[in-house]
């Protein structure tokens, strides 16, 4: 195996090693039921990670996910309730409406970054706060419950042991892969991330690509919001909490380089699985709770060391 090949598959090897490690200590870990549980925990996080992957590939960052997911989840719930409360009827319209809204929110996020020339780190973080604020304003601090059994089938209905939401997440992952690999926009993300000046000189409309990238991320954040509601049966202003850490960590652990141009949505998948496996595994093998956070940090650093090609960059900022 060449070094290049090894690097390409390193995140997968890390994942397999982790699964074997946890299974050796507690065989229950390696069971279909546990993998189904992992898939429920990982599905919303995967959608956020896929969305942010496009942005990181461009060499930017999008930190609006927590606010965006909360706001979109809350809006979805209100729309669903307003349209009759069930996706078996008119309520189904709430799904495409939320996805479109996600696209729009992402586009605004991108426009603020590009037009006002604010670094994406700051503009997206600020937009995230706006999202959380909007969610607080809409809910007044309360919880919006969704009892629609048809929508909740995403969690409760199983095919081959896995809940429906895992297949939905997989479907959107494939969509992301198609965009990344078979569209001009997807290739332009890499062009911008690999060398913005060069891309600009070759005639790529860099600003447009950036705005579209953020819009696409917003779309996937909306999917994450829907899955989060499916998973918990409710939305509130903290529905998106914790998704920032898990998604950014996953993308990097999965082998996407923060400096842009390297990696893709499959890396995001492997990364999310690695982080979810660590989180679940630590409890299953009985690591004391007071060292779990510390251990997660150490394991993440080890995973990044093993799964990214740091030799190819002259310096890391």
């Amino acid at each position: 195996m060449t070094r290049e090949n090894l690097l390409k598959w390193a995140p997968v090897l890390v994942l397999i090693a982790l699964v074997l490690f946890f299974s050796a200590i507690n065989p229950n870990f390696l069971s279909l039921r546990n993998f189904a549980r992992l898939s429920i925990a990982a599905s919303p996080a995967l959608m956020v990670a896929v969305g942010v992957t496009f942005i990181i590939v461009m060499g930017s960052i999008d930190l609006s996910m927590e606010g965006a997911v909360s706001a979109l989840a809350v809006i979805f719930c209100y729309m669903l309730v307003w349209l009759g409360g069930s996706v078996a009827g008119l309520g189904l319209l709430a799904v495409p409406a939320t996805l479109l809204l996600g696209l729009g929110v992402g586009a605004i996020n991108g426009l603020i970054h590009v037009r006002l020339r604010i670094p994406s780190f700051m503009s997206s973080l600020a937009m995230g706060f706006v999202g959380t604020g909007a969610a607080v304003l809409m809910t007044g601090g309360n919880i919006v419950k969704i009892d629609d059994e048809v929508f909740r089938a995403l969690l409760t209905y199983r095919m081959l042991g896995f809940p429906l939401m895992a297949y939905v997440a997989l479907g959107f992952l494939l969509l992301a892969w198609v965009i990344q690999s078979y569209t001009r926009l997807g290739r332009n993300f890499y062009a911008v991330g690999g060398g913005e000046d060069l891309a600009h000189a070759s005639g790529v409309n860099v600003k447009r690509v950036r705005v579209l990238g953020f819009a696409l991320a917003g779309f996937f954040f909306a999917v994450a919001g829907l899955l989060q509601v499916a998973k918990l049966g409710q939305a509130e202003s903290v529905t998106g909490s914790n998704l920032m850490f898990i998604s950014i960590t996953s993308v990097v652990v999965g082998g996407v380089a923060l400096w842009g141009g390297i990696g893709g949505v499959w890396n995001a998948l492997v990364g999310v699985l690695i982080v979810s496996v660590i989180n679940n595994g630590m409890i299953v093998i009985g690591i004391p709770d007071f060292i779990q956070d510390g251990l997660l940090g150490v394991l993440v650093i080890i995973a990044v060391i093993l799964s990214t090609d740091r030799r190819s960059v002259a310096f890391v900022k």
Binding site: N28, F29, S31, R37, A41, L232, N279, N280, V284
Partner: peptide, 10 residues
């Protein structure tokens, strides 16, 4: 929710 799932496995 995630902690409860892990409890169920364990």
């Amino acid at each position: 929710a995630e902690l409860m799932s892990s409890y169920l496995t364990k």
